[in-house]
Design a protein around this nucleic acid. Structure first.
Lengths: 218, 218
DNA sequence: TCGGGGTGGGTGAGTGCTCACTTCCTTCTT
DNA sequence: AAGAAGGAAGTGAGCACTCACCCACCCCGA
């Protein structure tokens, strides 16, 4: 996740780019540990090893820092799901859905502390929403629904299912699972996160979605 | 939701009990409109028609106010779901599940702004978690899983489904739906909340869960 | 080869503001 | 009369953000 000090190609960052990266890493780290409300400009500067004033050489304001963290440090869930429709017909449906779960849960887990801050403040929320353009949170389930529709055309899933509803079930489960993981932050009662293993959770969730719960006709 | 000015039995509140109720109603209203971060002591007092100082005659601190709001003003989702296992075998499974969706979505919608504030601050979260005892958020899906297990014993749902996973799918969908409603706060693109009608959403979601998505064997 | 001005990245020390909460006094109610 | 309920006017702390200034480095004419 952190790429402090090195570029994608491995060359070390220098000067401005380096401190910019340090600030983003520091902010991301603080949000994950002490939370958004304690991620103050003073703390970010301390963690990044620079002065508060330096933050403002690289970012317009504090909100700008958080927006960049979200955009440049978050796993690209929406992009990953958007690619799925092209893969319809290849591999197995279960496989693809499990892959979605495995990516989605950590993504939401990381996003919750920041999104939480937005939910507590409608004006911040509205400002952020405008900048999101076509990356809004509903695109995850709607891209997944597109994928399900594609598989449906290929006859690999039942013709009478509602792709939107099915997508909502799966994404919702990931979303809620991530919430529980954040909420119980390592102090979860054993029964709260079942199964505990991420891969098993993915498998069990997809199995339940695929199979449905209806009793077989007698 | 608001019970400003009257008791459950209809007798008017007076004196201390009245202002106490006014404060709770004011806080709940503000959280829903301007959000948690703008729900300051000053604003709560203004909205309640009293002074800031008066707040502290009735509540230990600001957090105490929010805890009371959560406890005394929120729909009792956990309680409603906990009663479900006793109804196993009566009515139809679909009916019960749709009822859960219809209660759960508004409950989560109302809780998000407050929960959001908690997610942004691990220490507040930990404090709140301790006070929750046996009302933690995972109890909703685990009670629902208990209900599904009961129906399973009665043969009204398939024997091979994982009740925990199925419960997580349904509750997760409600949770995510509520999040989207809060996130888009009336400015949702049409495709974000589909179907728009709550009852149709409940029906579609339950149908998808019950039926599964597997293609019938050729 | 040198000097010097421009520039980008950096800082220490504030600024004004808002917040939760308190003090102290007055006014009701019984 | 006395205690509970309420209010005006603070208080100190913490916040995002700014200001005036510094210094290392680079380019460039002489």
């Amino acid at each position: 996740m952190t790429n402090e000090g090195t570029r994608e190609d491995g060359r070390p960052l220098t000067g401005a780019a380096l401190t910019r990266a340090k600030v983003l890493d520091a902010a991301a780290r603080l949000i994950g540990t002490v939370g958004l409300v304690r991620a103050t400009t003073k703390e970010i500067a301390r963690e990044a090893g620079c002065s508060e004033a330096a933050l403002y050489k690289h970012f317009r304001d504090k909100e700008d820092i958080f927006v960049r963290v979200l955009r440049e440090r978050a796993p690209r869930l929406a992009a990953a799901v958007a690619e799925l429709p092209d893969r319809a017909g290849q591999g197995s449906v279960r496989e693809h859905l499990e892959a979605v779960v495995v990516i989605a849960v950590p993504f939401y887990r990381q996003s919750f502390p920041m999104a939480g801050g937005l939910l507590a403040s409608p004006e911040l929320l509205a400002a952020h929403r405008r900048k999101l353009d076509d990356a809004g949170p509903h695109h995850v389930s709607s891209h997944l629904a597109d994928y399900l529709r594609a598989e449906q055309r290929l006859g690999r899933i039942a013709a009478d299912v509602d792709p939107d509803a099915a997508a909502m079930l799966l994404i919702g489960a990931c979303f809620h699972r991530a919430f529980l993981e954040v909420f119980y932050a390592g102090e979860a009662p054993a029964e709260a996160l079942r199964p505990a293993d991420p891969d098993e959770f993915a498998a069990a969730t997809v199995r339940a979605l695929v199979g449905g719960i209806e009793a077989p006709e007698a």
